[in-house]
């Protein structure tokens, strides 16, 4: 690990103050810092100002809304999984949050931090000397993606566990910048580019995520990883499904670890109203196969993760319908 670079720390009390500071050149926001600080230590970030969000009290609340929850971006993962409402009514969310990192990380790691989690790659999450000896990479300081050298896009994998979970609850995010506030669908916050995976404007701050309650759905999140604790997902699959009298009413499938963005599987609505049988399940699994694109960004080959994501999705769909 490298020594930390020199930077200033600011600790604003309100989101408004935070975005004013975040608008400065080379400013970076820090939540719990469980991913950001290791990245700083690896020389992957060189901010001039670090805006610490831990004293912004308006971002630390979990509020019940008319048909769901509004969760502040600075809510810690431990707070999230200890919240009675989350445990009772958003089981999949609690399940996903509980698989993130380790017990100790979850005390400080935040909801916003996990949603904005930097994409990961075996050629990126390395020390400065390692990356330098490999001529760096497209995501940072280099001009070639070692995962897909023919391409012109970074293939680092998005690895946050909360995003797919939030997506099945129809999540929207509240974003604040000096220009004002906007609310967008969570899935529109990401794009398929590992180096620029977040569609946020410079200095824009994620302050809250808004989710809707799912009534009458069977839900489950399953994560596959090498080490049972702490590790990032090789793949993560969130499924919420509802059927009535043997017919599929609704199914929402979201993935992580497979692409440079969390993937909300599109096209499931074509199976709505059809009988829950082998053919319908096959069609849903095919959507997962086609839309997931694991690459050689981890120590396991992409072909392995392709098989895993398809099989995990098939198992969950079978189990929940």
């Amino acid at each position: 690990m490298e020594l930390l670079p020199e930077f200033e720390i600011r600790q604003p009390k309100t989101a408004e103050e935070a975005v004013a500071l975040g608008a400065e050149a080379d400013a970076r926001y820090i939540g719990g810092g469980t991913d950001f600080v290791p990245n700083l230590r690896r020389g992957l970030e060189t901010p001039s100002t670090v805006v610490d969000l831990s004293e912004v009290s308006e971002m630390q609340q979990i509020e019940e809304t008319e048909n769901g929850l509004k969760i502040g971006a600075s809510v810690s993962l431990q707070q999230l999984i200890s919240n009675e409402l989350v445990i009772k009514q958003y089981a999949l969310l609690a399940q996903a949050a509980e698989t993130i990192a380790g017990t100790t990380h979850r005390q400080s790691a935040t909801v916003g931090g996990n949603l904005c989690l930097d994409t990961r790659c075996q050629f990126y999450n390395q020390s400065e000397w390692w990356r330098k000896s490999n001529n760096y990479c497209l995501k940072y300081r280099g001009d070639i993606c070692h995962v897909a050298p023919q391409g012109d896009i970074c293939r680092a994998a998005y690895s946050g566990d909360l995003a797919p979970a939030m997506m099945v609850y129809g999540a929207k995010v509240e974003l604040v910048s000096a220009a004002g506030k906007r609310v967008i669908d969570l899935k529109d916050m990401y794009q398929e580019d590992g180096a620029n995976y977040l569609l946020l404007n410079p200095g824009e701050l994620l302050v809250a995520v808004i989710i809707e309650r799912l009534d009458g759905y069977n839900t489950e999140y399953r994560k596959v990883r090498v080490r049972g604790g702490v590790d990032f997902p090789l793949v993560g699959v969130a499924v919420a499904a509802k059927s009535n009298a043997g017919k599929l009413e609704d199914i929402r499938i979201a993935l992580t670890g497979t692409n440079s963005r969390p993937v909300f599987v599109e096209g499931a609505e074509e199976s709505f109203g059809k009988p829950v049988d082998e053919e319908t399940i096959k069609a849903l699994v095919k959507l997962v196969r086609v839309q997931s694109k694991p690459m050689r960004s981890t120590f396991t080959p992409g072909s392995y993760r392709s098989k895993v994501v398809v099989n995990v999705a098939r198992r969950l769909i079978n189990q929940l319908l």
């Binding site: 810092g33 600080v37 290791p38 230590r41 690896r42 610490d52 100790t104 990380h105 005390q107």
Partner: peptide
């Protein structure tokens, strides 16, 4: 880098990894 837990200390009674925690926190 926050992966092994050897640096765990308690902050206000909660376990925290001191190797990835800034003093300002």
């Amino acid at each position: 880098g926050g992966e092994c837990g050897a640096c765990t200390v308690l902050v206000d009674g909660k376990p925290m990894l001191s190797c990835i925690t800034l003093v300002s926190k």
